[in-house]
Write a protein that binds this DNA or RNA. Structure first.
Lengths: 193, 193
DNA sequence: CTCTTAAGGTACGCCGCGTACCCTATAAGG
DNA sequence: CCTTATAGGGTACGCGGCGTACCTTAAGAG
């Protein structure tokens, strides 16, 4: 044997291999044997670090990308909201998003994994971005102060998420995003005056 | 062999057995071998009718219950909405709902199965009930006519559904339902005036 | 009383998860 | 240096579950 990796180095190699498998085959297609082979190691080394396949999947997903969360500032609440939704839609409908949805489905009956996922998928960051958006709109006098509310901030993304749950894999058409903003989000903000 | 069932009779026995397995073990725990054993038959008879496990799961779910969809009429929009949401929450958090969520998770990457599910889970019926509610409120002068809109009608249930996706198995607390109605649904209806 | 059709019985191939064991390189510590 | 604990490598295996193959046998149609 030429060299034998250990510790951090090996761990990174495993995560990289798992992330590659995720990208190519999705979570359902990611098998422990293939990850081990691809990382040039064996399942022992994996199971010593992650007790279950799902745990490795989540860790690898994190390794897959550090989602950059933009804070749009188009000048209008409508513009900001649309941009946020469009960006989210793009992420979710990408192969990357398919992985995420596969993981969510697999973790659906495992509360522990679910919280892990929430932490690592930047959901909280996103909520804060929406709240910031509402605050800026209120400062501009474009929205009532009472609209700066957690439920209001999370509603559009929740609706988009539910839309994905109803449809299958394809991306959500842009008209739906516009509808969410114009028929729900903006009237809702207005109604809280 | 005493008697040998065929056709309709056998089919019903299989569906009943599958439904029982669903109730006891959820979709993830429903195995073809156990269903066959429970129905007093073998897997051949099953695979001759349903090509895949998921197909049997969906058929059996339908057999599990014919959800009665109530049309509440408490006299106020808030009362109606809360009652609808509470009833939905009860359904979703019951063992019955756990089965449904398991099926949805399993069918997440299969558009064909997803549409099958939508048809058989009474989602459309529910949407129509919400629209009717809004119409009655408009007739009473409690809501603007512009609030009778598909997106408005589906928003509360969508939010509840997304809430389930975020949390794990436990039921959604009643406070959340109240918040959805008071902080989102009613302001939204108001804002569409 | 055939004869076609569908059910029953049983075994199997395949795959994937997770585990067990034993061997060997590596790094830490006297 | 040399020893020793630790962790990686190799490999095999048990188990469970899906879907299939094949043959036997009961039911019902004509």
């Amino acid at each position: 044997m030429v060299t034998r990796r250990r510790g951090e180095e090996l761990e990174q190699a495993i995560l990289q291999a798992a992330a590659d498998e995720l990208r190519e085959s999705g979570y359902a297609g990611m098998t422990m044997d293939r990850v081990a082979a691809r990382a040039g190691t064996n399942k022992n080394a994996i199971y010593r670090r992650w007790p279950r396949r799902a745990a490795l999947g989540i860790a690898a997903y994190r390794h897959l990308s550090d989602a950059a969360m933009p804070n749009p500032d188009t000048g209008t609440l409508r513009g900001d909201a649309l941009q946020m939704l469009r960006q989210a839609n793009e992420t979710w409908s990408s192969p990357h998003g398919a992985v995420l949805r596969g993981l969510l489905a697999a973790a659906a009956d495992d509360p522990e994994l679910l919280t892990l996922m929430r932490e690592r998928s930047g959901a909280d960051t996103m909520d804060r971005a929406w709240l910031g958006m509402l605050e800026r709109a209120a400062a501009r006098g474009e929205a009532p102060a009472a609209a700066t509310h957690h439920r209001v901030a999370t509603t559009p993304v929740m609706l988009l998420r539910a839309e994905y749950a109803m449809r299958g894999i394809p991306s959500v058409p842009d008209e739906v995003l516009v509808e969410i903003v114009d028929e729900v989000f903006l009237p809702l903000v207005r109604g809280r005056g």
